[in-house]
């Protein structure tokens, strides 16, 4: 069963405290930026449930993220609904249903088939929105309003307030972390890990492997939908790129960079990846070239990601302490 290295837990606690107090002094740009990073951390964490625990390498995870963005965009722009009490369940519900449908088809296959099929089915969702001219086609569309949270005339929460939004994103990230931690400790979570290690043996023990995979797929898709809802509220913009396979590849890269099979890995990965992208983008217009090289270097040199490095450091530290 997976265990988090102690050094990672310490780092995690430190990071959580830092994130909790950052808006007290942090400047506006970074408050917004970190909110965005946390949304991607949540998105990546949801994918890690599939890749890192269930062993399902999905290359179409952006479909659920982007679908949620479009559901918010559609309800706000076309139906004039702005209440978060409607938008959030609608976004999560749509993502869950899409994940159930795509998952139902793709879990019949394994390995490289699964990769290709999740990619292709996600691309189907991409083209669906891409082909809708009144939804902005390739260019996408602005979302007319951020979600509102009203109780009668009382405004409970202000999505336009960057600090409130920051804490909302942090809250969602922490909640998802806790939820996934609980799930991974349950028999269900252990079963997923078992399936990843040896699917045939799990069947022989009496597990309906397909059912477990599908449920994991829906949970992950729904959490990606939550990230998509937050992204729609943050960016107030919906484009097919949200659903595209470059986004799916991007979030997969975040998972690997941070270290798959750990929940904190995707968070670290999101911070490192997005900060790097932001930095390189200030250097050159062709920053994706640098990212391409970076991706290849990570695959060659750090297959276990940052979490793998921490694990090694932790082991060294313990050995050092033992000697001393």
């Amino acid at each position: 069963m997976p265990h988090h290295p102690r050094i990672a837990l310490a780092l995690l606690a430190l990071g959580a405290v830092f994130l909790a107090v950052f808006p007290l002094w942090g400047d506006t740009f970074y408050i917004r930026f970190i909110a965005r990073i946390m949304i991607f951390a949540l998105f990546a964490m949801s994918l890690d449930l599939l890749v890192g625990y269930a062993g399902l390498v999905s290359l179409g995870h952006a479909a659920f993220f982007g679908l949620a963005v479009y559901v918010v965009a559609g309800l706000v722009n076309k139906a004039g609904v702005t209440s978060a009490f409607v938008l959030l369940p609608a976004a999560l519900g749509a993502a869950a249903i899409a994940a159930a449908a795509i998952g139902w088809i793709s879990i019949r296959t394994t390995g490289v088939y699964f990769i290709m099929i999740t990619l292709a089915l996600a691309q189907m969702v991409y083209y669906f929105f891409h082909d809708q001219k009144e939804w902005g086609g390739t260019d996408g569309m602005n979302i007319d309003s951020k979600p509102t949270v009203m109780l009668g005339d009382l405004k409970l929460f202000d999505f336009y307030d960057r600090v409130q939004f920051y804490y909302l994103a942090l809250g969602c990230l922490v909640a998802a972390f806790v939820l996934l931690t609980v799930i991974l400790r349950s028999p269900f979570g252990h079963t997923l890990v078992g399936i990843r290690a040896n699917e045939g043996r799990m069947r022989a023990l009496g597990y309906d492997v397909q059912r477990y995979k599908l449920i994991a797929f829906v949970i992950a898709g729904t959490l990606a939908g939550l990230a998509g809802f937050l992204e729609a509220a943050r960016a107030t913009f919906a484009t097919p790129a949200h659903l595209g396979w470059h986004e799916s590849g991007h979030v997969l890269m975040i998972v690997i960079l941070g270290g798959m099979g750990t929940l904190f890995g995707p968070i670290l990965g999101a911070f490192v990846m997005l900060l790097m992208e932001d930095y390189f983008a200030t250097l050159t217009e062709r920053w994706l070239l640098i990212m391409g090289v970076f991706v290849i270097l990570v695959v060659m040199l750090l297959p276990d990601g940052i979490a793998g490095v921490l694990r090694r450091v932790g082991r060294l530290g313990r050995r050092g302490a033992g000697d001393g």
Partner: peptide, 27 residues
């Protein structure tokens, strides 16, 4: 399951007979 302890191996086997899915209670 080579990465699991002996007990974890057996627990994984035993919980295959749980009548319902269990997502929230610790194993």
């Amino acid at each position: 399951f080579r990465d699991f302890t002996a007990f974890e191996n057996c627990r994984l086997a035993a919980q295959a007979r749980l009548p319902r899915l269990s997502l929230l209670r610790p194993a």
